[in-house]
């Protein structure tokens, strides 16, 4: 019997491959498998009942799931657009500053140093209807006499969550766009000014095409982030009031752990990943197009 010896590269890679398989591939396949079972944490034997696509079919007809799905897309749209605009504005403001730019950059990245859990608590405190900063300010300025129920009314709660989300992540846009602005050659801008452009035209026709790729990179990162938004919502409203701020992943977590319906939860999770994939592909396409357009060499 001649045992074929494994070649050195394979042998050397084997430990890493085994570890990766153990911590990534096995759980992934198990969870993927369990999405085809009626697995409940309380009844372990259900793990072995195969029910095919029934979980997926149930999800498709589950109004709660679609509401959460829609809300996540809505949050994504609102947050990404506003963060884009605000981040762009912030980057332009900081880039134009002639003095103290280093300090401004540090302050600008301040929100990125906060963990999402902390951001959640912070904004929960600020939006508190009784003692929160926001209501206190509105009342002191005489804009209203009432205590606005920020986290108690559905729409307001969604707005509050969006604000927290935007506050914590505008910096990502700002820092990436600022990097683009600093990397950009100054001469085309000067040429445009001489060619007769107003500041707005200079931005529109010269600066913007240059920084567009950077904006798309930020978009990609953030779309993945928001599509799996969990911590801030969990802390601020926990999906409430009455499920009015339930997002995909708070719903998944609730189904999995509170309701103990692991099988359904995994089915939802795999379905939700589609959303992330769609956005990533979309923004990467845009990024590639924008890069070719400016003839980027990176």
């Amino acid at each position: 019997m001649t045992a074929k010896r494994l070649s050195a590269p394979i042998l050397l890679l084997l430990p890493a491959v085994l570890v990766l398989a153990a911590v990534v591939v096995v759980p992934l396949s198990l969870s993927f498998y369990s999405s085809f079972t009626p697995f409940r944490l309380t009844r372990p034997e259900t793990f072995f009942t195969f029910i095919g696509l029934r979980n997926y079919r149930n999800i498709l007809f589950d109004a709660n799931f679609w509401w959460a799905f829609g809300r996540t897309v809505l949050l994504l749209t609102i947050a990404l657009n506003l963060e884009m605009l605000l981040g762009l504005g912030l980057a332009l403001l900081v880039e134009k500053a002639s003095r103290g730019q280093r300090l401004l950059r540090t302050i600008m990245m301040f929100p990125m140093m906060f963990s999402p859990i902390l951001v959640g608590f912070q904004f929960k405190f600020m939006f508190n209807d009784n003692i929160g900063l926001v209501n206190n300010a509105l009342q002191s300025l005489g804009l209203t006499q009432d205590a606005i129920p920020w986290l108690i009314e559905g729409h307001l709660a969604f707005i509050a969550i969006s604000i927290a989300e935007i506050w914590s992540s505008t910096s990502i846009f700002a820092i990436l766009i600022l990097a683009g602005l600093l990397a950009m050659p100054k001469e085309p801008v000067e040429a445009a000014r001489v060619d007769g452009c107003t500041p707005w035209q200079t931005f529109r026709y010269v600066t913007w095409p240059f920084i567009m790729p950077f904006a798309y990179i930020a978009m990609t990162i953030r779309s993945l982030d928001v599509a799996r938004a969990y911590d801030i919502v969990k802390i601020m409203t926990d999906g409430g009031p009455a499920g009015r701020t339930e997002l995909l992943w708070t719903l998944v977590a609730r189904t999995a752990y509170s309701d103990a319906r692991m099988g359904v939860a995994n089915a939802m999770a795999y379905f939700s990943i589609l959303l992330s994939i769609v956005f990533t592909v979309y923004f990467f396409r845009k990024l590639a197009a924008a890069r070719t357009q400016i003839g980027a060499e990176w």
Partner: peptide, 30 residues
């Protein structure tokens, strides 16, 4: 833009995302 001058830069300063035709016509378009 109010001085009616034009300038040629050391590093050419062409607009990389425009064709030669668009580069030439840019000031007129503006």
């Amino acid at each position: 833009r109010s001085r009616n001058i034009s300038m040629v830069f050391q590093s050419y300063a062409l607009y990389p995302h425009m064709t030669v035709r668009e580069n030439l016509g840019f000031s007129l378009k503006i």
